[in-house]
């Protein structure tokens, strides 16, 4: 199963298996990794699943939809490598993905 490394704001790393076809947000929630709130459960309606993708992985996570783009433009402290993790579906190509959490989601 592909692995994802989630790095908390305080530097704590979590490496977990995320099944192909589930979202990167789900991977964190299902393993109780702190730092992703996911209030809307993955509907791209809340922007509380915001993460920073490590630059070498960013392109592989695909393009943001226009809804994601406008939600992100108001999320706290966005960067060029910001994504909403509920909008990234796990694929075999994403095995090894590394991402970091922002300081807060609200």
């Amino acid at each position: 199963m592909p692995k994802v490394t989630y790095i908390e704001y305080n530097g704590t790393e979590h490496v977990v298996d995320v099944p192909v076809g589930t979202s990167v947000m789900r991977g964190a929630v299902d393993n109780n990794i702190p730092g992703i709130d996911a209030d809307c459960g993955g509907e791209c309606a809340c922007a509380t699943c915001h993460v920073y993708i490590e630059p070498e992985w960013f392109a592989k996570t695909g393009a943001r939809s226009s809804q994601e783009e406008s939600m992100l433009s108001f999320a706290a402290v966005t960067q060029d490598n910001s994504r909403l993790s509920c909008q990234i579906e796990m694929t075999a190509e994403l095995d090894g993905l590394v991402l970091r959490m922002p300081e807060g989601q609200h």
């Binding site: 922007a47 809804q67 406008s70 939600m71 433009s73 108001f74 999320a75």
Partner: peptide, 10 residues
Amino acid sequence: AAPEFMGGKM
């Protein structure tokens, strides 16, 4: 209208 919602919330 996501920008209005997100901006409004802030």
